[in-house]
Simulated scan of single mutants.
Amino acid sequence: MSAALAALLDPAHTPDRPVAGYIGADVPVELLTAAGYLPLRLAGSPHEDAAEGRRLLGGGLDPVACSVLTRLLAGAYGPLEVLVVSRDCEASLRLFYVLRELRRVEPETALPPVHLVDVLHLPHRTTTRYVWAKVRGLRAWLAERAGRPAGDDDLAAAVVTHDRVRGLLRAAGALRAERRLTGTEYLGVVAASTSLPADRSATLLAALLDELPDRDPRPGHPVYLTGSSHDSPDVYATLEGAGLLVVGEDHDHGDLLSRTDVGMPAGPAGLDLALAERYQHNGPAAPRASIAERAAHTAAGVRSRAAAALLGYVREHDDAPAWDWSAQRAAAGVPAALLEHQPYGAVDPAGLDRALAELRTPAVAA
């Protein structure tokens, strides 16, 4: 492992500022940084018992949300000054309501103040105005919690730095077409970028990009992964341990997180609007985009990463990705296999054996 990659994947990072936990890729992290917080994206853990989260959230819900709630109640993320939840899916929305109610009825529970940011993704100016209002509302709420407003200079600097991180992640992702990173490694790199200060992430990512071109290609049958998101490396490690190499994906814990930038507007008055437009048009994520958008995006990813096959992975109680599968498979034009109703953080062995055989079978032209 290269020195830069080892530094990025090192979990022993001590926060140097108050931590703002956030849930979902629709949270404008630039506002958290500008307010003086360290943004920390909260991930679940398939290795820990999530019974308490299931009890509070109810059955039939994506197990990631149950795991995050259980870990929050156990203090697994360390001290959080604030918590921001995006409405990126129905599980996140239900999680927000439960957190808000717990703070109301059980004030002794060690939960931070929580705020919902509702970002819509329709391609309309009315949607932009709605999201713009939500961005301004989050900015005002953070100023109240931090005890000071985040000035335009602070926000402009945060936008520049986070855009730089996204650009570096895209550059690292592009090198996966040359097999310079495994999918498991890239997932760890993205996770590090959501837990480190943005300027530190940029420094480490730049060092990684200096080293990657000289790295020997990673082995494995190159596949593009679609379906549910992955907030832990377990599924990727299983797939790559079985002889695959994940060269790209269309979920927001991977390539999709860094697809678009904010960009600097002509003047500081446009910063909130620029943020609103970036998060409105970010995607296309399975719960919020059309089937046609998802199919076109996935097919483009298969081509750009020189993937030899398309693999769909759909976690139990995560219904949206399965709706896109038929169109994605048809658009990709490569051998394809679907793993449905998979346990959180795992792959059914029998299903994996079947998928491996299908992924190496030549696609039949429509």
Rank of each mutant, 00 (worst) to 15 (best):
D210R: 15
A177M: 08
R278Q: 14
V160C: 01
H281K: 12
R180F: 03
A150T: 10
D210P: 02
L196A: 02
G151Y: 04
D272S: 04
D252R: 03
D252E: 15
A171R: 15
L225H: 11
P197T: 05
E185I: 05
P197G: 14
R179G: 11
H162S: 00
E211R: 10
T260R: 15
D250Q: 10
L212V: 02
L225N: 12
G167Y: 02
L204N: 02
S258H: 08
L181W: 09
A286R: 11
P265S: 06
G241E: 07
P233W: 01
A158T: 08
D252S: 14
D152K: 13
P213G: 13
T260A: 15
V165C: 03
D199P: 03
V189K: 11
H281P: 02
T203F: 05
P287H: 11
A191L: 14
E249F: 09
E144S: 14
A174W: 02
L169F: 01
R218D: 07
P217H: 11
L239W: 09
R218A: 15
L168M: 12
R179L: 02
D272K: 00
V189H: 03
H281A: 15
P287M: 13
A206H: 06
A198T: 10
S193E: 06
T161R: 14
G267K: 00
D255P: 07
G173L: 09
A286I: 00
G267Q: 06
G254L: 00
G151I: 07
R148E: 14
G183E: 09
N282T: 09
H162W: 10
Q280V: 06
T238N: 00
D214L: 14
G147W: 12
V235A: 03
S229F: 12
P268W: 02
A266Q: 11
A269S: 13
R259S: 08
R180L: 08
T238D: 04
V262T: 13
P149T: 12
R259A: 13
G188D: 09
R170D: 13
D216C: 05
S232D: 13
R179T: 06
E211P: 10
A286M: 14
P284A: 09
L142M: 10
V165P: 06
D216E: 15
A192E: 13
A150V: 12
L205E: 09
H281G: 10
D272Y: 01
S258G: 01
L204H: 04
Y186V: 00
L212T: 05
